[in-house]
Design a protein around this nucleic acid. Sequence first.
DNA 1: CACTTTACCAAACAACTGTTTGTTTTTCTA
DNA 2: TAGAAAAACAAACAGTTGTTTGGTAAAGTG
Lengths: 227, 227
Amino acid sequence: MESLIKVVTSTPVKTVQKLKIIRMTLTETLVTDSSSKTRRSHSRIQPLLNGAAKLFATKGYKETTMRDIAAEVGMLPGSMYYHFKSKQELLLAVYTQAVIALKTKLESAIALEQDPWKKLEIAIITHVETILDQNDFARIMIGVIPEKAPEIQQELTAMRDSYEQIFIDIIDDIPLKKGLNKTLFRLMLLGALNSTQIWFHKGAFTPVDIGHEFIRYLKTSVVPAEQ
Amino acid sequence: MESLIKVVTSTPVKTVQKLKIIRMTLTETLVTDSSSKTRRSHSRIQPLLNGAAKLFATKGYKETTMRDIAAEVGMLPGSMYYHFKSKQELLLAVYTQAVIALKTKLESAIALEQDPWKKLEIAIITHVETILDQNDFARIMIGVIPEKAPEIQQELTAMRDSYEQIFIDIIDDIPLKKGLNKTLFRLMLLGALNSTQIWFHKGAFTPVDIGHEFIRYLKTSVVPAEQ
DNA sequence: CACTTTACCAAACAACTGTTTGTTTTTCTA
DNA sequence: TAGAAAAACAAACAGTTGTTTGGTAAAGTG
């Protein structure tokens, strides 16, 4: 997971081009990284992304200033513009890395399981665990609303969709009652899962608790047996 | 609903004091509005609240500037400070009005119903309809995250809680399976309902569809009958 | 070793932010 | 109708925002 990301993000090409590459690896298939001369590797791009992720996740995109991020990584504000040409591109890079990491984690978590219901259960728990586990990158994908960055809104939405596609595929394999709308089912489920980030606080429930209960509500009736 | 609000908000007292009164009517019981000399009634406080509500709901709190709101209601930025001493107080007033309106609407919707499940169903549909019906005030209570306005965060959260209390009470009367955690049940439900605001777009489903389906997923099992 | 590239600093810029001030117009009241 | 209160205007302020610019030390390369 980490290594995968590093290969992509630390490519020493211009920022704009670099982001295009990330996008390609995500949406398309592969990229012929011809400029793989492995130059500077101890750059501060990753610390910068980490710092930005932390602040974006905690305070929100708009609420985080470039000066905040610069201070977080021990850098002057202007220096960041050597690596990223704008705040939006920085968000795009962070968001991209987040989606890649989450997809990788989720896919490897469900890979071994065959039973579709078990698969969904594992996916739910993994998802909840990830977004609740103080993982800055995970919190971003849930918390940052693409509309807040109009110029890259499409890219962000497309990436988030590519993550949700995993859930679409899982639910597609589940036998559900006739006439049950699978889209609505998924939207309800993900809405419930993502909202955990708002009300969750350690102590009351664990992510596993939440995952188990949620799936129980859906899989079995919440109504007690008649009479 | 409208009249209730007007009585409170158009009271010609200083803004700070006025907001206190609103808060009292919400959290406490009643207020002895001794200064009810019915002075200025055609003030522009309500248009101001409406404009602010519209922009806060559409663009977000932080993304909306005082100049935006001023332009929306045809006023100069500084003029607003005669009515509200700060942006946060303006949000507080809008949020307060929103909660009052939503609570009133929801309470009167479920008042006639006796059966707890029917009550929940009506509450769900009413809630979804309200937040999807382009109602600016409703969208604010869901979309504006209290943390974004630190100085009034407590007040906002308290008000939202007072709304959710209605759902707590309804669910409390519902007989659910043994060992089923009602808090988690409610959080899941409200999380799912509120997320509709993100993905809903006219055409695919109606609020009533969504309400019916969601309650169906929970009330009955989504798994088809065995064999 | 010269030299090109990389990475950063220091300082500023222009636009925008919420808010304040003093003044003027409008509205209500006696 | 005169005076007081209410409401809005006009203009600015001080701080913050994302970003740009020109310079400079360090690292990689021939």
